Measured scan of single mutants.
Amino acid sequence: MATGGRRGAAAAPLLVAVAALLLGAAGHLYPGEVCPGMDIRNNLTRLHELENCSVIEGHLQILLMFKTRPEDFRDLSFPKLIMITDYLLLFRVYGLESLKDLFPNLTVIRGSRLFFNYALVIFEMVHLKELGLYNLMNITRGSVRIEKNNELCYLATIDWSRILDSVEDNYIVLNKDDNEECGDICPGTAKGKTNCPATVINGQFVERCWTHSHCQKVCPTICKSHGCTAEGLCCHSECLGNCSQPDDPTKCVACRNFYLDGRCVETCPPPYYHFQDWRCVNFSFCQDLHHKCKNSRRQGCHQYVIHNNKCIPECPSGYTMNSSNLLCTPCLGPCPKVCHLLEGEKTIDSVTSAQELRGCTVINGSLIINIRGGNNLAAELEANLGLIEEISGYLKIRRSYALVSLSFFRKLRLIRGETLEIGNYSFYALDNQNLRQLWDWSKHNLTITQGKLFFHYNPKLCLSEIHKMEEVSGTKGRQERNDIALKTNGDQASCENELLKFSYIRTSFDKI
Results as ranks from 00 to 15, higher is better:
His28Ser: 05
Tyr30Lys: 06
Tyr30Asp: 05
Gly32Asn: 13
Glu33Arg: 10
Pro36Tyr: 12
Ile40Asn: 02
Arg41Gln: 11
Arg41Gly: 15
Asn42Leu: 05
Leu47Pro: 02
Glu51Cys: 15
Glu51Leu: 04
Asn52Ala: 12
Asn52Arg: 06
Cys53Asn: 00
Gly58Ala: 01
Gly58Arg: 00
His59Met: 10
Gln61Lys: 07
Gln61Ala: 00
Ile62His: 01
Asp72Thr: 09
Asp75Val: 11
Asp75Ser: 12
Leu76Gln: 04
Ser77Asn: 06
Ile82Thr: 07
Ile82Val: 07
Ile82Trp: 07
Met83Ala: 05
Ile84Ala: 00
Thr85Met: 06
Thr85Gln: 14
Asp86Trp: 01
Phe91Gly: 05
Arg92Ser: 12
Val93Ser: 01
Glu97Asp: 09
Ser98Lys: 04
Phe103Trp: 03
Pro104Trp: 00
Leu106Lys: 00
Arg110His: 10
Arg110Ala: 08
Arg110Glu: 14
Arg110Gln: 07
Gly111Arg: 00
Phe116Ala: 13
Asn117Ala: 09
Ala119Val: 03
Leu128Met: 06
Glu130Ile: 05
Glu130Pro: 01
Glu130Lys: 04
Leu133Lys: 01
Asn135Glu: 04
Asn135Trp: 05
Met137Tyr: 14
Thr140His: 06
Thr140Arg: 07
Gly142Cys: 15
Gly142Thr: 00
Ser143Tyr: 07
Ile146Thr: 01
Glu147Leu: 15
Glu151Trp: 11
Cys153Ala: 02
Tyr154Pro: 04
Leu155Val: 15
Leu155Gly: 06
Ile158Trp: 04
Asp159Gly: 12
Ser161Trp: 05
Arg162Trp: 15
Leu164His: 08
Leu164Asp: 11
Ser166Arg: 07
Val167Ala: 12
Glu168Tyr: 11
Tyr171Trp: 10
Leu174Thr: 14
Lys176Tyr: 03
Asp178Ser: 05
Cys182Ser: 05
Cys182Pro: 05
Asp184Pro: 04
Cys186Asn: 02
Pro187Thr: 11
Gly188Phe: 09
Gly188Pro: 08
Lys191Cys: 02
Thr194His: 09
Thr194Phe: 15
Ala198His: 03
Thr199Cys: 08
Val200Tyr: 13
Val200Pro: 06
Val200Leu: 04
Ile201Met: 06
Gly203Arg: 11
Gln204Pro: 08
Gln204Met: 06
Trp210Leu: 05
Thr211Asp: 06
Ser213Asn: 09
Ser213Ala: 05
His214Ala: 15
Cys215Ala: 05
Lys217Glu: 09
Lys217Tyr: 04
Lys217Phe: 12
Cys219Tyr: 02
Cys219His: 04
Cys219Asn: 15
Cys219Leu: 02
Ile222Phe: 12
Ser225Asp: 08
His226Tyr: 03
Gly227Tyr: 10
Gly227Leu: 03
Cys228Arg: 02
Thr229Gly: 07
Thr229Asn: 13
Thr229Pro: 07
Thr229Trp: 06
Ala230Lys: 15
Glu231Gly: 15
Gly232Ala: 06
Leu233Gly: 08
Cys234Thr: 02
Cys234Val: 01
Gly241Ile: 02
Gly241Trp: 01
Gly241Cys: 02
Asn242His: 07
Asn242Cys: 10
Asn242Ala: 09
Gln245Met: 13
Pro246Thr: 07
Asp247Tyr: 13
Asp248Phe: 02
Asp248Asn: 06
Thr250Phe: 11
Thr250Trp: 10
Lys251Ala: 00
Val253Gln: 11
Val253Gly: 06
Arg256Val: 09
Arg256Cys: 02
Tyr259Arg: 12
Leu260Ser: 12
Arg263Thr: 10
Arg263Asp: 13
Arg263Val: 11
Val265Pro: 00
Val265Gln: 06
Pro269Val: 06
Pro269Trp: 08
Pro269Arg: 01
Pro270Trp: 12
Pro271Thr: 13
Tyr272Trp: 05
Tyr273Val: 10
Tyr273Met: 15
Tyr273Lys: 12
Phe275Lys: 02
Gln276Leu: 06
Trp278Val: 05
Asn282Asp: 13
Phe285Tyr: 02
Phe285Trp: 09
Phe285Ile: 04
Phe285Gln: 13
Gln287Lys: 11
Asp288Tyr: 10
Cys293Val: 07
Cys293Met: 00
Cys293Tyr: 01
Asn295Trp: 12
Asn295Gly: 14
Asn295Leu: 10
Arg297Asp: 15
Cys301Phe: 09
Val305Lys: 12
Ile306Gly: 13
His307Lys: 06
His307Arg: 05
Asn308Gly: 08
Lys310Phe: 09
Cys311Leu: 12
Cys311Ala: 05
Pro316Ala: 13
Thr320Met: 09
Thr320Ala: 11
Thr320Tyr: 06
Met321Pro: 02
Asn325Lys: 03
Leu327Glu: 11
Cys328Tyr: 03
Cys328Pro: 01
Cys335Gln: 03
Cys335Glu: 07
Pro336Ala: 04
